[in-house]
Measured scan of single mutants.
Amino acid sequence: AVTGSQTALLLRAFEKDRFPGIAAREELARETGLPESRIQIWFQNRR
């Protein structure tokens, strides 16, 4: 499950760019500790 702090970080990124590229998703994966594929799905679901 995604924690509150991970969600906050993802929401901030989403406000800046609703369609992040692979580099941005990989950076978010490093920052959150989540797999990049999970980040991609999160953005798809959020849109």
Rank of each mutant, 00 (worst) to 15 (best):
Arg38Asp: 14
Arg30Trp: 06
Gln40Cys: 14
Thr7Met: 15
Leu28Ser: 00
Gln6Ser: 05
Leu34Arg: 00
Ala1Leu: 12
Arg12His: 07
Ser37Thr: 10
Arg38Ile: 15
Phe43Met: 02
Ile41Ser: 11
Glu31Phe: 07
Gly21Arg: 04
Ala13Pro: 01
Arg46Ser: 06
Ser37His: 12
Leu9Arg: 08
Gly4Pro: 15
Glu36Gln: 09
Phe19Thr: 05
Gly4Val: 14
Thr3Asn: 11
Arg18Gln: 13
Gly33His: 04
Leu34Ser: 01
Ile41Phe: 09
Ala13Gly: 03
Ser5Lys: 14
Leu11Asp: 06
Lys16Asp: 05
Arg25Thr: 09
Ile22His: 11
Val2Cys: 03
Thr7Gln: 14
Arg25Phe: 14
Glu36Trp: 05
Ser37Asn: 09
Val2Tyr: 13
Gly4Glu: 15
Glu15Ile: 10
Ala29His: 03
Ala1Lys: 13
Ala23Gly: 08
Arg30Gly: 04
Ala24Ser: 07
Arg47Asn: 11
Arg18Pro: 15
Ser37Gln: 10
Arg25Asp: 01
Glu36His: 06
Gln44Asp: 09
Ala13Asp: 00
Arg18Lys: 12
Lys16Val: 09
Glu31Thr: 11
Ala24Tyr: 06
Ile39Lys: 02
Gly4Asp: 14
Arg30Leu: 08
Ala13Glu: 03
Ile39Val: 09
Ile39Trp: 00
Arg38Gly: 06
Ser37Asp: 11
Thr3Cys: 07
Asn45Pro: 00
Leu34Tyr: 03
Pro35Trp: 03
Arg38Met: 15
Glu26Gly: 07
Ala8Gln: 11
Ala13Thr: 04
Leu9Lys: 08
Ser5Gly: 10
Arg46Pro: 00
Thr7Tyr: 15
Glu26Tyr: 09
Gly21Phe: 03
Pro35Glu: 09
Thr32Tyr: 02
Gln6Phe: 07
Phe19His: 08
Phe43Lys: 02
Asn45Cys: 14
Ile39Gly: 01
Ala29Ile: 04
Leu28Cys: 02
Gln6Lys: 05
Ala23Thr: 09
Gly21Pro: 08
Phe43Glu: 01
Ile22Leu: 14
Leu34Cys: 04
Ala8Asp: 09
Ser37Pro: 10
Leu10Glu: 01
Gln44Tyr: 09
Arg12Thr: 07
Leu11Ile: 13
Ala24Val: 12
Leu10Trp: 01
Thr3Val: 06
Pro20Val: 03
Asp17Asn: 14
Ala24Ile: 09
Gly33Lys: 05
Leu9Glu: 03
Arg25Ala: 04
Glu36Phe: 06
Asp17Gly: 04
Glu31Pro: 01
Glu27Arg: 14
Phe14Trp: 12
Ile41Asn: 09
Arg18Ala: 12
Ala1Arg: 12
Ser5Phe: 14
Ala8Thr: 09
Thr32His: 00
Gln44Asn: 08
Ala1Ser: 12
Leu34Thr: 01
Ala8His: 07
Ala24Gln: 11
Ala1Cys: 15
Ala13His: 09
Ala24Thr: 08
Ser37Lys: 10
Gln40Met: 13
Arg25Met: 15
Pro35Phe: 04
Ala29Thr: 04
Gln6Glu: 04
Ala29Asp: 01
Ala29Glu: 03
Ala1Pro: 12
Gly4His: 14
Gly21His: 05
Arg12Tyr: 06
Arg30Ser: 05
Pro35Tyr: 02
Ala29Gln: 04
Leu9Phe: 09
Gly33Arg: 03
Val2Gln: 05
Thr7Leu: 15
Pro20Thr: 03
Glu31Asp: 07
Arg30Met: 08
Glu26Ala: 12
Ala1Val: 11
Ile41Thr: 10
Arg47Ser: 05
Gln40His: 12
Leu9Thr: 09
Ile22Val: 12
Ile39Leu: 03
Leu9Pro: 00
Arg12Gly: 04
Ala23Leu: 11
Phe19Pro: 01
Ala29Phe: 03
Arg25Glu: 02
Pro20Arg: 02
Phe43Val: 02
Leu34Glu: 01
Ala23Phe: 09
Glu15Asp: 08
Phe19Leu: 04
Ser5Tyr: 15
Leu28Glu: 02
Lys16Tyr: 09
Leu34Ala: 02
Gln44Glu: 15
Ile41Asp: 13
Thr7Asn: 13
Leu28Thr: 01
Thr32Ser: 05
Ala8Met: 11
Glu31Trp: 08
Phe43His: 02
Ile39Met: 01
Pro35Cys: 07
Phe19Gln: 05
Leu11Trp: 07
Thr7Pro: 00
Thr7Gly: 08
Trp42Asn: 01
Ser37Tyr: 14
Pro35Gly: 05
Leu34Val: 04
Phe14Ile: 02
Phe19Ser: 06
Gln44Thr: 07
Leu10His: 00
Leu28Arg: 00
Thr3Leu: 07
Arg18Phe: 04
Phe43Asn: 00
Leu9Tyr: 08
